[in-house]
Design a binder for these strands. Structure first.
Lengths: 108, 108
DNA sequence: GCTACTACTTAGTGGCACTGTATAGTGGTA
DNA sequence: TACCACTATACAGTGCCACTAAGTAGTAGC
């Protein structure tokens, strides 16, 4: 699927939060996971900038641990603020999808 | 619903295309329609910038006509390119919603 | 030593929704 | 006639976010 960039704004960060909420994980693995899920054009650089932002905004806890197959990994987990943000994300997502459905049906 | 701005990027333009595809209409009325649909914080300025962009990108036909209750109105209709863009918009929207659903279910 | 894979960093770019201000036509009312 | 409310468009500037691109580094196989 071509050129999803604009439509991903605001949602890709939510996807990353959701992935982290499922299990403690790190940037490189999150990128692979997004690619698997169908976000095939998302690259490491994009994910790392999101992770930096999440940390700056105090939504995640970070732990650096050696890898064995490469440089050390930075593992992320959600804290309470992160879980709240994730809940807000899904609430917004449902809100927008319901409006779009209504619009598409020509709903009055 | 608070602060949908980022999530609306790329979708608000699609909403405007969809509204125009339903009937020939103009900026002020499109804004009212979006407000009715639940996009309560969208204001005229936002819609006008989208309309200017649509025209610049050759997706709409424009006709200026007097109003009777105020300044003249600029009526917009989709041309072939506009209808194609609208179809692409809904294709992208379905793609993204399906991926998000999959992610939310923890889908593998 | 070279290549491939893993893994993180960061400065810069472009697009989009949004803000704020300006202009202008019509109608009501005091 | 002065003021206000509603209708209607225009446009310069802002901020956020995904993306680009180039770099550094560790491990393993040849």
């Amino acid at each position: 699927m071509d050129n999803l960039t604009e439509m991903l704004k605001g949602t890709l960060e939510g996807c990353v939060l959701e992935i982290i909420s499922g299990e403690e994980t790190y940037g490189y693995a999150i990128t692979r996971r997004l690619n698997e899920l169908g976000f095939t054009d998302v690259v490491e650089g994009t994910v790392y900038t999101i992770l930096v932002r999440l940390e700056k905004n105090g939504l995640v806890q970070v732990a650096k641990r050696p890898s064995g197959v490469g440089p050390p990994r930075k593992f992320y987990t959600l804290n309470d603020a992160g879980r709240e943000e994730l809940a807000r994300f899904w609430a917004k997502w449902e809100y927008i999808t319901s409006r779009l459905d209504k619009l598409r049906e020509g709903g009055r």
